[in-house]
Amino acid sequence: MSEKIKEWPGVALKDADIKEKKVLFTEWRPNLKYAWDTGVGYGRYFEGLRNGRIVGTRCNKCHRVLLPARAFCEWCFRTVDEWVYLKDTGTVNTFSIAYTGTQAERLKEPRIPALIEIDGSNGVGIMHLLGEVDPKNVKNGMRVKAVWKPKEQRQGAITDIKYWKPFEEGTR
């Protein structure tokens, strides 16, 4: 409300009025199924994930790795030059410790979304989750490695990587 208006006239509807069908209403549930044609760049990126690889492209003009792979460099306005196959290791650029889930539910065990700079990409990050780590021990700059789902469970999606776990250089 405001200084002038302390209360609006009328009676507001409550959730219960709808649930107990005290008022008449119509319901609407549109069918919003879609299929997005991923195209050459993203298509190969997703297919790469199914095969346990992180696929990008390189533009030789601006010397940039584009990740996820795109067919076109939007900086140089030209077609990219080659595919690049990146390692599934990287560095935590930033992270968050989330005690709230995607449905706004409370989480006992927090999820740790993080931006992970993929090795060999010159600092391109992808959003993902950290795992096998105590939230207290997560640091920016931490080295992490992808934990993939078993091959038969992969669907060609970013969730084919379960999460990223800390790793020491020189170990697997």
């Binding site: 009328g10 509807l13 709808i18 008022v23 008449l24 209403f25 119509t26 319901e27 609407w28 549930r29 549109p30 919003l32 199924k33 879609y34 299929a35 997005w36 044609d37 991923t38 195209g39 050459v40 993203y42 298509g43 190969r44 997703f46 297919e47 060609g156």
Partner: peptide, 21 residues
Amino acid sequence: VNQVQPWYGEIPVYGQYTFGV
């Protein structure tokens, strides 16, 4: 064709419209 795939999705939308006084 197995080198690309469409990305399938569904946007859940549900509305209720009351008729007013």
